[in-house]
Design a protein around this nucleic acid. Structure first.
Lengths: 235, 235
DNA sequence: AAACCACATTTGTCCGACAAATGACAAGCT
DNA sequence: AGCTTGTCATTTGTCGGACAAATGTGGTTT
C-alpha cells in the first residue's frame, strides 16, 4: 500500500496520489478489497475525513467502487476514466512501456489532423491572426526555450481555432501525457527548428481554408516527428 | 443556487449533481465566488463534511478552484474536464443547443472511422468472432429492442477490438452523450434495420483486415445516420 | 430444507474543535 | 506621503468522535 509516496500541497491530494497510483500501477489488483476506511486511515496516518475526501475523488475517476457493508473494491480497468488527466499521468509514471506510448501516439495521429481540418473550416480572422503570431515567434526563435514556448502557443492557437472544446480538451490531455515521455531533449538543440516548414504549411492551409491540405501537412509533420522520437527514445 | 434539485443515492452525489449542473448550466458564472463552506452547507442543509466531499470531486473535474482564505471560485470553461462523463451529461441536460450536438457529432465522425481502422489492423480472431456474433444477432433481430441491444454489442465489440482503451473510453463517453439526445425514436420502428448493410460492410472490412475500406464503410454509415437524425430531431 | 429474523460490520452523515494559510488593515519607518 | 512590516481576522484544511442507515451473515424457526 505504501506510506507517504507522494508529497503535494494538501493531505487529500497526497492520499489521492498515493492510492490512485497504486491502483493504476497495479500494486492493488482489480477486484481486490481494500481495508476498511478506519483501518486504511490508520495505516496512512490521516483522519478518516481526509481519506474519505480522497476516496470520493477516486470513485469519480472510476478507480474504486464502494458499497455499504461490503467495503471498497478496486474496479476493473475498463471502468477507469482513462482520459482523466491524473489517471493518464499515473499510467505515464508507472507504465512507461512502448505499448502504452504507441496508444498515445495513435490518439495523436487521429486527433491532430482532425483538429487542423476543423480549424481550416471554422477559424475566424482573429484566431488566424493568433496562429500567425505564434508562427512568427517560432521563426524568430533563437534558442530552444523560445522555440518550445512559441510551438506551444501555436498548437494552443490552432486548438482554439477549432471552436470545439471537446476536441481541444482531448488534445490537451493527450499532448500533456506525451510530453512526459518526450521532454524535447536538449540533444536536438541544433536542429530544433526542423519542423518549421511543416508548421508553415499547416498555417497556410488554415489561412486558405483548405481542410484536406491542412490534414496532409499535419500528417507529414507527425510522420517526421515520429521518426525523430524513435531516434530520441533510444538514448 | 437551488436547493435539492437532484435526488440520487448519496447525499454527496446529490450535492455534486446540484452544484455541478448549476455551474455547467451557467447559473453560477465563471470567476464568481461561492459562499463559504459553512454558509453553503447551511443553505443546502447538509453537513460541511458532505459538502467538502462534493467540492473535492468538483475540483477534480476542474469546475471549481479553492484556495485558503479566498474561498472557492468557479473556474473558466476552458479549465473544465469537458470529457468527464458527468460534465458532459450536465451539458446535455442544460445546453440542448444544436451547436453542442454538432460538436458531439463531429467528435463521433472523427473517432468512429479511426476506431474501425484500428480494429481492422489489430483485431485478433476471438475479437472478430465476438463482432460476428453481434452482427448475427442484429440480422436476426425481430423488434427494436433486440436490434438496439445487438447494435450496442456490435459497437462495444469493435471498440474492444481496437486494443486501445483510450480510444474506446473516448468513444464510450461521446456515444453516451449522443444517446441522451437521440433515443432511437420508436417512430422509426418500421425500418430500424436500415443500417444493417453498412454494419455488414464494416464487419467485412475488419475481417479482411482492410483499414481503409472499414473507414469508408463507417463514413457512409455516419452520413446516413446523420440525415436520419436530422429528420428525427424535427419531431 | 427453506424462509425469516436478529445481529454485527461497514459506509454514510453529522458535529465541534483546532491548525494553517493568507488577504486586509493598521502601525511604523524613511 | 509612500512604502514596508507586522498583527489580525477569516476561510479552508485536518482531526476525532458519535450516531444513522444499509446489508451480508448466521442462527432460528417452521
Amino acid at each position: 500500500m505504501a506510506l507517504k509516496a507522494a508529497s503535494a500541497r494538501n493531505l487529500h491530494a497526497q492520499v489521492i496520489e498515493d492510492i490512485g497510483s497504486s491502483i493504476v500501477g497495479g500494486v492493488l489488483q482489480p477486484g481486490e478489497a481494500l481495508p476498511g476506511e478506519s483501518q486504511l486511515a490508520g495505516q496512512m496516518e490521516v483522519s478518516r475525513t481526509v481519506l474519505r475526501e480522497a476516496l470520493k475523488v477516486l470513485a469519480s475517476k472510476g478507480l474504486i467502487e464502494t458499497r455499504q457493508k461490503t467495503g471498497m473494491r478496486v474496479r476493473e480497468p475498463r471502468h477507469w476514466n482513462h482520459l482523466d488527466a491524473d489517471v493518464l499521468a499515473w499510467r505515464c509514471a508507472t507504465m512507461p512501456t512502448d505499448d502504452f506510448v504507441e496508444k498515445l501516439v495513435e490518439m495523436r495521429g487521429i486527433i491532430e489532423p482532425a483538429a487542423v481540418m476543423a480549424a481550416a473550416r471554422r477559424r475566424d480572422p482573429a484566431q488566424l491572426e493568433t496562429i500567425a503570431e505564434a508562427l512568427e515567434a517560432m521563426e524568430e526563435a533563437e534558442d530552444l526555450d523560445a522555440w518550445a514556448e512559441a510551438d506551444l502557443r501555436f498548437h494552443e492557437a490552432v486548438l482554439a481555432a477549432t471552436n470545439n472544446e471537446l476536441l481541444s480538451s482531448l488534445f490537451a490531455v493527450i499532448e500533456t501525457a506525451l510530453a512526459t515521455f518526450f521532454v524535447m531533449s536538449a540533444r536536438n538543440a541544433k536542429n530544433f527548428k526542423y519542423s518549421l516548414p511543416q508548421h508553415r504549411a499547416v498555417y497556410e492551409a488554415i489561412r486558405r481554408r483548405r481542410p484536406n491540405e491542412a490534414a496532409a501537412a499535419m500528417h507529414s509533420m507527425i510522420a517526421d516527428s515520429r521518426t525523430n522520437m524513435r531516434k530520441g527514445r533510444r538514448g
